[in-house]
Design a protein around this nucleic acid. Structure first.
Lengths: 349, 349
DNA sequence: CTGAAAGCGCTAACAA
DNA sequence: TTGTTAGCGCTTTCAG
């Protein structure tokens, strides 16, 4: 057993007000009566150490309140056990599931997630990436595929696996897990047109992926011989208020509207709210489609038709790809993964 | 000027497929024609190096694409420039502003934020704290004041500044920035009672702070001589659907309801939605109060009366306290900060 | 103002 | 199975 006397000796005579030196492998080794290396092995490769030794080390760890210094671990072993993720906005519910799944999957593999927020746009992303590279992340997960030249160069050159997510591109930096926003825009347009709606509109927040959906929506409308959809730009993050104002704006137009695609469920909820307020029938007079299938979509009144994306799967797959690359083959799976999407038809259309 | 030849020599003859050795201070030093120490100083204490030298170093840094290894920096200097924050749920919009402000304030001071999610409850928090201590964070910010015995011991013993937030307690681990949830519950109860409402109810998600508000609400109702409020428990995270179901449940009760306090704005929006659906007048027959003043509260129909908390201020103050403690005095400001709250009166009451 | 030596805490590589 | 040696990349400390 670990000697409590030994433990006490380590902290004896120190003024408690001063930030005391943290215990190290050597302290643990001394208490356990083994070498530092054995402590390290007992903790990191338990199967390579006999049970008896392992137990003595574990007892010593608890007795000394030892917490391994991961800075030193990472420096020496060149593996920080840290994976960095960059999302446009931390508060955005759209990416919440992805982050959750990412963290959970990484955790199960012994990695920690380091989160950064780029703030929609390559401006903040560069500085963030610099910081993350400095921490020597073992892998990087990005939301989005639009990065500055410098960012792409840094990502490609730093030698760690990179996964871009939530979008597709013919020229990914490395690995890719996402879906086609153009396909979403086209599919929603066809969906609304299929219901006989002809005066379509798009209410869109200010982000590149939403713009891609809008563009494809408009192109598809043209293909189907519909009049050009009305486009209402909204700020990001999108709010319920933006949705209400957008509907008012659309109603003030001479042509009228009978189908609206919103770039977020919150915008769509705003449209529903304003429609109810003005006594406009949904889906009777106007059909409304959201994006994201947030928790409130199914319970809205009327229940909101929306585009569902499996955000959790994106996070999980991204994590697995990073881990796989770190652990194993040098370039195993450069095949982009398209997780697709689903139009969940509810009462609002 | 830095010689491009020198730079090339460093990467010559390396198989590009292999993860190449990252450039170090020594590489930069060689290119700049100075010692490693001078490079370090030029980067970390620019004012202590003459401009000419500094410029040469900077040129060499750019030429070599040098990114400092923060693992090594942290190990040697015992300052990781990392502040850890633990929030109950990353996706929760309630804490989004706090996290945002925290990150921004820390960034301005040259610190990075490391985010972790405890998942409402001390279970996950312990493991998370262990991980964060391992990374040798220079400071720790926690949402909440309920921690396991082990967590409190670790936090108190690790020698770094700790700030608990979003609540008050007579026995904080170290520093404290929050407000009284009991006061919120009492104030909302008086507010509703002040409107002549007597059949009150609370719809509450499953978290400790909400429970504190509920309890104070009930106690205040008793003080005011009102009948005991109906209590509806909801899951966390709270959703619009939970709010709708809660109202249905309350309406099925024999006593009836004329005032509802919801533990989140999303629950309140659900109550409003169900009320509108059933043709129940708000605020006429039922008054509804939310919590959080989310972006949709002001634009809901009717506009939602809710409790506003300055989440950004909490984040900012927490960051400033951590930074101040790291930089300066050993124990400067143990005075808890109460940021208070505000009942924002809108149409729903 | 600049540099040389030493070592932060840990683990890779080798040896016993 | 265990231990020894060395060094990851940086900055503290002290000397020039």
């Amino acid at each position: 057993m670990a000697s409590q006397q030994e433990v006490n000796r380590l902290t004896d005579g120190m003024p408690t007000a001063v930030r005391q030196r943290a215990t190290t492998v050597l302290d643990v080794a001394r208490v356990a009566g083994v070498s530092a290396m054995t402590v390290s092995r007992a903790l990191n490769q338990p199967q390579r150490v006999p049970t008896a030794t392992r137990l003595r080390v574990q007892a010593a760890v608890e007795a000394t309140h030892y917490v391994p210094n991961l800075l030193a671990c990472g420096l020496r072993s060149r593996r920080s056990r840290l994976v960095a993720a960059v999302v446009p906005a931390l508060g955005s519910p759209v990416f919440a599931e992805t982050v959750q799944a990412l963290a959970a999957t990484l955790d199960a593999a012994g990695y920690h997630l380091m989160l950064g927020q780029s703030g929609y746009g390559p401006a903040g992303e560069d500085a963030l990436l610099q910081a993350l590279m400095g921490r020597r992340a073992d892998g990087i997960v990005l939301v989005g595929v639009d990065h500055s030249r410098q960012a792409r160069r840094q990502l490609a050159g730093c030698g760690v696996p990179v996964v871009e997510t939530w979008d597709l591109t013919p020229a990914p930096v490395d690995m890719l897990v996402g879906f086609s926003h153009a396909d979403v825009g086209a599919a929603v347009c066809r969906f609304l047109a299929g219901q006989g709606r002809r005066r379509l509109a798009v209410v869109s927040g200010a982000d590149g992926r939403a713009a891609r959906r809008t563009q494809a929506f408009a192109a598809t409308a043209a293909q189907l011989g519909l009049p050009p959809p009305a486009l209402v730009a909204s700020e990001s993050p999108t709010t319920l208020g933006h949705g209400r104002r957008a509907l008012r704006q659309l109603l003030a137009q001479p042509h009228g509207v009978d189908g609206i695609f919103c770039s977020s469920d919150m915008l769509a909820l705003g449209v529903l709210t304003e429609a109810a307020h003005q006594g406009i029938a949904v889906p009777g007079r106007i059909g409304v489609v959201g994006f994201g299938d947030q928790s409130f979509a199914a319970d809205a009144e009327p229940a909101l038709t929306t585009v569902r994306v499996d955000g959790a799967r994106i996070g999980r797959e991204a994590a697995l790809r990073v881990i796989g690359r770190i652990a194993g083959s040098p370039a195993p799976d450069p095949t982009p993964l398209d997780v697709g999407f689903l139009i969940v038809e509810r009462q609002s259309t």
